[in-house]
Design a protein around this nucleic acid. Sequence first.
DNA 1: AGAGTGACCGTCA
DNA 2: ATGACGGCCACTC
Length: 106
Amino acid sequence: MEQNFFERVYTVVRKIPKGKVTSFGAIAKCVGATKSARMVGYALNSSKLMADVPAHRVVNRNGLLTGKSHFGDNNAMQSMLEEEGVPVKDLKVQDFREYFWDPGKS
DNA sequence: AGAGTGACCGTCA
DNA sequence: ATGACGGCCACTC
């Protein structure tokens, strides 16, 4: 147990390639908390305070930008993804499975 | 020390 | 197919 569960999440999220997105469940599983995807979001909550963690690339299983509320602006997260090349519609990633990136695959 | 909360996911009805 | 409930782990008050 190095440090906090959070750091693990950060590490994984930071590995997310640009123009790709991942799901909480995937991250949770990667860090070893398959059943606690919730805490992943919690970790990201702190991560959003860190510029090193592209939390906007992390969406829920449905490809929905759940955390947009926490980002501040509703279009902030969506815009960023679109900027990176991820088509987003109404805070929802289009072709989510295509843009989905597996953290463990790295 | 105890209780509450949280950017979720999976399953049952 | 849609709606609702529980579970799970860590953090904060």
